[in-house]
Design a protein around this nucleic acid. Structure first.
Length: 991
DNA sequence: GAGTTTGAAACT
DNA sequence: CAGTTTCAAACTC
């Protein structure tokens, strides 16, 4: 485990170089991610999803963070359910002990991390201290998420004790109140704790106390017991009252279980835990957690608080769940380090929540502690932190709490992963509404949560896998939604975002006691969305993780010379720390070297902002347009490698090929020779893309009255399509981003946005734009590959931000949350800006050209540019995008549409117009096939946009387009059409 | 388990 | 940006 000294020296030298370059402390902040996150932090920070960087290994990064959001919702539910759990006392006792142990370890780690990570970590540490005091002093106040986030071991201990007390009290609450009963139930906390401790798993435990005890004492885990408990719980609490919460809780539980297992393996060395068992436990635990959550909600009615706790717990759990999670945590490392401390932090959070709500939460805290124990938990912690941060920020406003953590922590990692998923779930949630969640919950009950956990884990482990998982997830009918969402989530590791959203919701709810009810609904909705995502994804992820992992589900690296500080290292590339299974030599990819890792990451990101982005991007069924809500089904086949492969000899039939390894077909972006990829040949892909494009174009053209000229353009475009297709592949994923969706979400209803996007695409304007964009695009595409385009755009936009997808994730979260969090202007703005993921890029671009800086919001967007760009990526993977039935066009839209969206927002154009504008944007985007799609100069001129730059023009173009749309004439179209046919459109746009 | 092959990542 | 080197995984034996 300990990195060899020699290796250390070498690593230090390397690290030192990196550190020197980037300046040590800021690594996190400096990193685009962090910067973005920080910028976005108030609203977004929390959401940072840990980003599992590379898709192949594990798609989206965003890993952990994303999960957090989900987790949060789940956690809340878990809380409730846990209350029920509280009944099983055995677990609790052990948990406490475990917590203490772990806390100690965590503290060390956390300290190190804090030292390493000046920003977030330090903040965390401080927060921890504050939290401790705070927790002690403040019993009731919801307090600051930050604080509890910051909490470290000490706090944990205290909190744990207090929690135990609380838990006991809560335990007093009757289990019977499954439904909305007000009585607080602490079983949830117990649940988590049990999971964390592992012993918890043994016994169904009941209260947090038991969980604590388990933690302390727990070396051995009995999954079977847990299962039994879960079953019992299920029986006891059939109620679906808090479906939303349940999922989150379940997730949390699952994560905890995993963590427990991990901790076990690592700490206790008890290899008893089998991957299979772990999975089971996870699955079941989530259910339990759900139950507890329900109870909790019913009893306490403090769902918001619960959510926070749950989130934390979930995070920890998630981390636990996947042995690989730790590794994944790299991005989360900061968080993880915190997480280690977090054991305390979570408890604190729980305390806070508990304080506000009563003892029930305390149990949760305990569970959190236990979970934290395992280093692996760190990842979850990070997510937690991220989630908490946003929350904290929110709370901070109220409580004035210092939530330095929120700002600092957001370090980007977390944001990554889940942003997409979150966004999607959120969208879905909004669109689908709670009842689906409820139904789903009722039917699947805890599974969703479990699945969530799995997703998270999977995401954490391998973002890349996510794409695969997505495809898998789509398999089940029931889970189709979930699957699609899961897929998206997986790809983007969106789990976090949902959680973030949930956090926001929670915060609001907390703030407004009145809204508890609403909160529950929201939570349930989120949970549903999460569940949907999670369920399919978790399973898939689990499978994938197992398959990919050596056996433990953890991927191992065998680095000899790189010290696991280069992308050669799968662990490092995936944003996770190397773990026991790794056979690496001189490994610095460990929590102890968090600083080094972060610095190195920053360096790499500085070179390639997308270096840690998921390699595999799921394409939402580009052509599937389900009007938003359901169009999501992303087929595995739709996934494509971000940059493509370069196989010369393997013919893409061996794992040497990253595409093949990721179980995705080759795309136009691949430079492979003699491609025979069984998942899809490059040629086929290109051909398909052309065919699709042609079909779309033709159909649209027909509808729009466009003559053959238009088709010609399309054809020409298609000819160029190799690149375009590649882009489209990416774009589809991006399109899923459905800037329109997010956009709409912000401005209005997500569903509307989706619908609008679809409609718009269909609308003549969209077609026209497509053509025009296509023409342009073709030009660009020649030079740039689709992937390249995306990358370029992202790079340009991001400049610093390496993890665009995180941004996306955040965006998605924001979008979702935004509606809820209307209160915060900042948040809303961010959300709005972010909402259109594509806008992010556009924003960045526009910033250069137009100067979004004008509007503070715009600036924020620009700042988050990296994120935004990421967002575009995210969106691609994000399940949300599915909405964009237009797919291709949508993708294209993503790039420009974002800018457009931003413009629209700025313009204060009527919602309708905005929406319409978004479609236009979408059209443009789609047309480009590539994100950039800078509209031809002509278009620019036509639009009258100021800037000549393609992007700029696109933005301007958008602005005009918006107004034009109302008139039904797509501005973009006018441009595009102007080139060929649409003179009318042009006139319209010009008008 | 050692050696070879392969292609990505890193470097120039 | 292209070419080369380095690296670790994948593969073979």
């Amino acid at each position: 485990m300990d990195s060899p000294e020699a290796a250390n020296n070498a690593a230090h030298s390397t690290a030192a170089t990196a550190a020197t370059s980037s300046s040590e402390s800021p690594p996190v902040q400096e990193s685009p991610f962090f910067s973005y996150v920080n910028n976005l932090s108030p609203p977004i920070n929390a959401f940072k999803a840990a980003y599992l960087a590379q898709g192949l290994p594990g798609l989206s990064s965003p890993h952990l963070v994303f999960r957090l959001p989900r987790i949060n919702s789940l956690r809340e539910t878990n809380f409730l359910k846990r209350a029920r759990y509280s009944q099983s006392p055995s677990v609790e006792s052990n948990q406490n002990d475990d917590i203490g142990k772990y806390s100690g370890d965590d503290n060390h780690d956390s300290k190190k991390l804090s030292s390493l990570l000046p920003g977030e970590l330090v903040n965390d540490a401080q927060n921890d201290c504050n939290i401790k005091n705070y927790a002690n002093t403040q019993p009731n106040s919801l307090v600051r998420v930050d604080d509890y986030l910051a909490d470290h071991v000490e706090v944990d201990c205290d909190s744990v004790h207090s929690l135990k007390r609380d838990v006991k009290q809560s335990n007093d609450v009757p289990k019977s109140s499954v439904g909305d009963s007000n009585g607080p139930r602490e079983t949830l906390s117990n649940f988590d704790e049990k999971n964390v401790a592992g012993e918890k798993l043994r016994e169904p435990m009941v209260l947090s106390e038991q969980s604590e005890e388990d933690l302390q004492g727990n070396p051995s885990f009995k999954f079977e017991k847990i299962y039994m408990e879960e079953e019992e719980r299920d029986v006891e609490q059939p109620s679906k009252e808090v479906p939303h919460l349940e999922p989150s809780l379940s997730i949390g539980l699952a994560s905890e279980k995993q963590q427990c297992e991990e901790s076990f393996a690592q700490n206790a060395g008890g290899g008893q835990l089998d991957g299979y068992d772990c999975t089971r436990q996870l699955m079941r635990e989530p259910l339990q957690g759900v139950w507890g959550c329900e109870n909790y909600d019913e009893n306490t009615g403090v769902t918001s608080n619960v959510t926070a706790q749950n989130i934390l717990l979930d995070d920890s759990k998630a981390s636990q769940i996947q042995c690989g999670m730790r590794r994944r945590c790299l991005q989360f490392e900061e968080d993880t380090s915190n997480a280690l401390r977090n054991s305390t932090i979570f408890p604190r959070v729980a305390k806070i929540v508990i304080n506000s709500r009563a003892a029930s939460s305390s149990s949760v805290l305990k569970s959190q502690h236990s979970s934290h124990v395992a280093l692996n938990v760190a990842s979850s912690k990070k997510q937690m932190l991220k989630l908490s941060q946003p929350i904290t920020s929110l709370f901070a406003t109220r409580c004035s709490g210092n939530s330095p953590l929120a700002g600092s922590k957001p370090s980007g990692i977390a944001l990554h992963l889940n942003s997409i998923v979150n966004a999607v779930p959120l969208a879905r949630v909004s669109s689908t509404s709670t009842r689906l969640a409820e139904d789903y919950m009722s039917v699947q009950g805890m599974k969703p949560a479990s699945t969530m956990n799995c997703h998270v884990l999977e995401n954490m482990k391998s973002c890349l896998i996510s794409s695969n998982a997505v495809g898998e997830a789509s398999a089940s009918n029931e889970d189709e939604r979930h699957d699609t969402s899961a897929l998206r989530a997986a790809t983007s590791s969106t789990s976090e975002s949902p959680g973030a959203v949930e956090h926001s919701y929670l915060l609001k709810h907390i703030e407004n006691p009145e809204t508890l009810h609403d909160k529950r609904k929201l939570c349930s909705e989120h949970a549903e969305s999460f569940e949907e995502f999670n369920q399919p994804s978790p399973r898939k992820k689990m499978k994938k993780s197992l398959s990919t992992s050596d056996g433990d589900g953890c991927k191992r690296c065998n680095c000899k010379k790189t010290k696991c500080l280069k992308l050669y290292c799968d662990c490092f590339a995936a944003g996770i720390y190397c773990g026991e299974p790794c056979a690496c030599q001189g490994c610095f990819n460990r929590p102890e070297y968090e600083d080094t890792v972060l610095e190195t990451r920053q360096q790499i990101e500085s070179r390639n902002p997308l270096a840690f982005a998921p390699k595999i991007i799921q394409r939402v069924n580009e052509f599937q347009e389900n009007n938003g809500e359901e169009g999501n089904l992303t087929t595995p086949s739709s996934a494509r490698h971000k940059t493509g492969c370069n196989c010369k000899k393997s013919m893409c039939l061996k794992k040497y090929c990253e595409c093949y390894q990721a179980n995705v077909g080759c795309s136009g972006g691949c430079r492979c020779d003699g491609c025979k990829n069984v998942y899809g040949r490059k040629e086929e892909y290109v051909a398909t893309g052309h065919a699709l494009i042609n079909e779309m174009m033709s159909s649209r053209v027909v509808e729009q009255r466009f003559d053959g000229a238009f088709n010609d353009k399309l054809e020409s475009v298609s000819n160029n399509t190799d690149l375009l297709f590649a882009e489209l592949n990416d774009l589809p994923n991006l399109s899923p981003m459905t800037p329109s969706l997010q956009f709409s979400d912000r401005g209005k209803g997500v569903a509307k946005s989706r619908l609008l996007s679809g409609k718009y695409l269909l609308t003549t304007g969209s077609d026209v734009t497509v053509l025009s964009s296509g023409a342009k695009y073709t030009k660009t595409s020649k030079n740039l590959e689709s992937n390249d385009v995306l990358l370029e755009t992202s790079k340009e936009v991001l400049a610093a931000g390496s993890f665009d997808w995180r941004m996306d994730y955040n965006v998605g979260i924001m979008d979702q949350s935004s509606p809820i969090c209307d209160t915060d202007d900042n948040v809303c703005h961010l959300t709005t800006l972010l909402g259109p993921p594509t806008t992010a890029r556009a924003m960045s671009i526009s910033s250069n050209t137009r100067g979004w800086s004008r509007d503070p919001q715009a600036q924020a967007c620009h700042r988050s540019g990296s994120l935004l760009s990421r967002g575009s990526l995210h969106w691609r993977s994000s399940p949300i995008t599915p909405e964009t039935g237009l797919g291709e066009t949508k993708y294209l839209e993503c790039f420009e549409s974002d800018s457009r969206l931003c413009d629209i927002l700025e313009d204060d154009t009527p919602e309708v117009l905005k929406e319409t504008s978004t479609p236009c944007n979408s059209v443009k985007v789609s047309s480009p096939n590539k994100k950039r799609v800078s509209p031809p100069n002509i278009h620019m001129h036509e639009l009258g946009s100021i800037s000549s730059g393609g992007l700029k023009s696109g933005i301007k173009y958008i602005l005009k387009a918006v107004p034009s749309f109302p008139s039904l004439t797509p501005c973009i179209d006018s441009k595009s059409s102007s080139d060929k046919t649409a003179g009318n459109q042009e006139t319209r746009s010009n008008s």
